[in-house]
């Protein structure tokens, strides 16, 4: 077991590429810089969140990963900062690749846990995964998702909870991240667990309570740091993060009717074939709404 005493302190915030990023490190990583904090601060790794050490140290959570990662024991030692210092430099280079793979695969499992979801939720509320490029989604923040859970198959994509579609990251450094490090389940589990966070189909994107708190207070980044500290405290207490959900009363049967769509026009007139397709699509929509509303009333009686 690591001798470290985990006492998270908020050191404040630093300006990174135009974004205010809260830097929270413990004493150990402050003086020695842990592999994970190094990994998370590397350019291109902005989508990843911190996997808590408890999760990594619980062998059960890593079941099967020894078959996926070469030099698994050493890779695990590297990401938990327990690698022997006398290891050869040339081996260290290749080990780093394996350590990234291992961290990514652990990350995919971590972000579908309650605490992992909560961590990704903080990043989502700060729109750290970018915003939907679709004009009518009005800057809706995105969530990372994989097309497969198997590594080395497909790069990471971004899911928009408003148009419910997938987009490619704008930046090539994000476009080359393995989608398996986020998995196919994550964004859908997030909205399943936090139904109140399902984005509205029209109107400006609601960034949720986190950013509202930051916006209300003029101290900006300080408020975010405070919020982070609070949420960290909540996590430590193992409080049920689920409380934020509580969407018993949410009814999404007919939300699609509120969704805006673009209508191509030539000199003000709709384009025939596209208009026909759009009418068909809207008839499909109406049919689903009818089906869902019927289900709703059946469920109520």
């Amino acid at each position: 077991m690591s001798p470290r005493v985990r006492t998270p302190i908020i050191l404040g915030s630093s300006l990174q590429g135009g974004n205010w990023v809260c830097v929270s490190i413990d004493f150990w990583s402050f003086f020695f810089s842990s592999w994970i904090s190094w990994f998370l601060s590397s350019k291109g790794n902005e989508y990843f969140c911190e996997v808590e050490e408890d999760f990594i140290l619980d062998r059960f959570n890593l079941t099967g990963l020894n078959n996926e990662v070469a030099n698994y024991p050493q890779a695990l030692d590297l990401i938990t900062d327990q690698l022997d210092d006398d290891i050869q430099d040339e081996f260290r280079g290749s080990l780093d690749v394996q350590a990234r793979l291992l961290y990514g695969l652990i990350h995919a499992r971590w972000i579908v846990t309650a605490r992992g979801l909560a961590k990704m939720l903080e990043k989502y509320k700060r729109a750290e995964f970018g915003r939907c490029p679709r004009v009518l989604c009005q800057q809706q923040p995105l969530l990372p998702v994989g097309l497969t859970d198997i590594p080395y198959e497909k790069s990471v994509k971004l899911y928009c909870g408003r148009c419910e579609d997938l987009y490619s990251p704008k930046s090539s450094r994000h476009g080359s991240i393995d989608g398996a490090y986020f998995g196919t389940t994550f964004p859908h589990l997030l909205f399943l667990v936090y139904p109140t966070l399902i984005p509205p189909k029209s109107g400006p994107a609601d960034l949720g309570p986190l950013s509202t708190a930051a916006g209300a207070s003029s101290s900006g980044a300080g408020a975010i740091a405070g919020e982070l500290a609070r949420s960290r405290r909540r996590q430590k207490e193992e409080a049920p993060m689920i409380a934020e959900g509580g969407g018993e009363d949410i009814n999404t049967a007919n939300v699609a009717l509120k969704a805006e769509r673009y209508r191509p026009k030539i000199y003000g007139f709709q384009v025939n074939e596209i208009a026909k397709l759009q009418r068909w699509q809207e008839a499909m929509r109406d049919r689903q709404v009818k089906r869902l509303e019927e289900m709703e009333t059946q469920g109520a009686t």
């Binding site: 419910e164 909205f191 139904p195 999404t252």
Partner: peptide
Amino acid sequence: YVPRIYGFKVSERAKSGPRMQWLRLRP
């Protein structure tokens, strides 16, 4: 796109189930 949770399609019966597939659908 078909959203999945642990390999299972998210049902439209769920509150967070798909609502926008019509927007991209073609006959």
